[in-house]
C-alpha cells in the first residue's frame, strides 16, 4: 500500500508543559503455546521483582470458550501488574507496557523499561510468535483542540466547528500504519477525577512480517514512537505549540 503521511515535519521538542499525555502504551500481540492459566503464572514469576502487585480484571471471570468465540475480546488484557512507575497488562494474546495514568516518565524511561520487558519475555520463552507491535499515545486538553490544529474541517468554504466532533483517519508510512483519532468532547478519568475536554490519540503499528520482536522490537517501538511524536507536534499550530512551553534539545 502506498505511503500517505501528509503531516509536515517540524522540529520536535523534548518536553512540553503541562504534559498532556494521559495514556502511553507499548503493545505486543502474540500467539503462545501456553494455556492462559500457565501463561499468567509464568509471566508474574518473571516480572514480580519489579511488578509487585497484581490486579485481576473482570473479563477474567468469563469462561475461556466464551472469550475465544468473541473476536472483540481476543486482544483484551485479563490481568494487570503494577510497579512504582509502570503498569503491564497481560491477556492470552496481548501484553502491553503502560505509563501510569498522568505520570508519563518520558521516552528515555519508557524505552529502557520496554527493553527490559522484551529481554524478560525472551528469557521466559513465553511468546511463540509476535503478531503486531504498536505504540499508542493519548493526549488530553481541557479546551476544544480543533482550533489549535492545522487540520481543519469545513462544509463548502465555511469552517465546520461543531461542539461535538470526532475525526478518525489512517495514515501510512511503510511499514507502519497510524490511526489518528481526535475528539473535542471526551471524558478522561473516572468518577470524581473525570474531566471533559479534547483528546488526540495516535496509534502506530506494524504487522507480523515487518518486525522480529527479539531482534528489532525495541527499534520498531522507537520508530513508532517517533511517528507518534511527529504526528502530534506536526498537527499543532505554531502559536499553540508555543503556549505549551516547548523545550528543544
Amino acid at each position: 500500500m502506498n505511503d500517505f503521511f501528509p503531516i509536515p515535519g517540524v522540529t520536535l521538542p523534548t518536553r512540553i508543559s503541562p504534559c498532556p499525555i494521559v495514556d502511553a502504551a507499548l503493545e505486543i500481540r502474540f500467539v503462545t503455546s501456553q494455556s492462559w492459566s500457565v501463561l499468567a503464572g509464568l509471566f508474574f514469576a518473571l516480572v514480580r521483582e519489579r511488578y509487585t502487585s497484581q490486579v485481576d480484571l473482570p473479563l477474567q471471570q468469563l469462561p475461556e470458550e466464551v472469550r475465544r468465540q468473541d473476536s472483540s475480546l481476543t486482544y483484551l488484557p485479563l490481568v494487570q501488574f503494577y510497579s512504582d512507575s509502570f503498569l503491564i497488562q497481560l491477556g492470552p494474546r496481548v501484553v502491553s507496557l503502560n505509563a501510569l495514568p498522568r505520570r508519563y516518565p518520558g521516552w528515555t524511561a519508557v524505552a529502557s523499561e520496554i527493553s527490559w520487558l522484551l529481554k524478560t519475555i525472551e528469557h521466559g520463552g513465553l511468546i511463540k510468535e509476535a503478531e503486531r507491535l504498536g505504540t499508542r499515545y493519548i493526549d488530553f486538553f481541557a479546551d476544544d483542540i480543533f482550533p489549535h490544529l492545522i487540520l481543519r474541517s469545513q462544509i463548502a468554504d465555511t469552517p465546520f466547528q461543531p461542539r461535538e466532533l470526532m475525526l478518525t483517519t489512517v495514515l501510512r508510512r511503510t511499514p507502519f500504519t497510524a490511526r489518528l483519532l481526535i475528539a473535542n468532547n471526551a471524558v478522561v478519568g473516572q468518577q470524581a477525577d473525570a474531566k471533559t475536554g479534547s483528546i488526540l490519540e495516535v496509534d502506530v503499528w506494524v504487522g507480523a512480517l515487518d518486525f522480529d520482536l527479539f531482534k528489532n522490537g525495541r527499534d520498531r517501538f522507537a520508530e513508532a514512537h517517533a511517528i507518534v511524536k511527529q504526528t502530534f507536534f506536526g498537527l499543532l499550530t505554531p502559536e499553540f505549540l508555543a503556549s505549551l512551553h516547548p523545550e528543544y534539545p
Binding site: 494521559v22 495514556d23 502504551a25 490486579v55 485481576d56 480484571l57 473482570p58 473479563l59 483484551l76 488484557p77 494487570q80 503498569l87 497488562q89 503502560n98 495514568p101 493519548i138 488530553f140 461535538e164 466532533l165 470526532m166 475528539a183 468532547n185 471526551a186 471524558v187 478522561v188 473516572q190 468518577q191 471533559t196 483528546i199 490519540e201
Partner: peptide
C-alpha cells in the same frame, strides 16, 4: 461512594455519548 471494578486501560477516555 460507588466503587467500580478495575478497568483495562484499553482507552484512557470515553467519547461523549453522542459521539461514541
Amino acid at each position: 461512594t460507588k466503587t467500580l471494578p478495575p478497568r483495562a486501560r484499553q482507552s484512557a477516555y470515553t467519547p461523549n455519548d453522542d459521539l461514541s
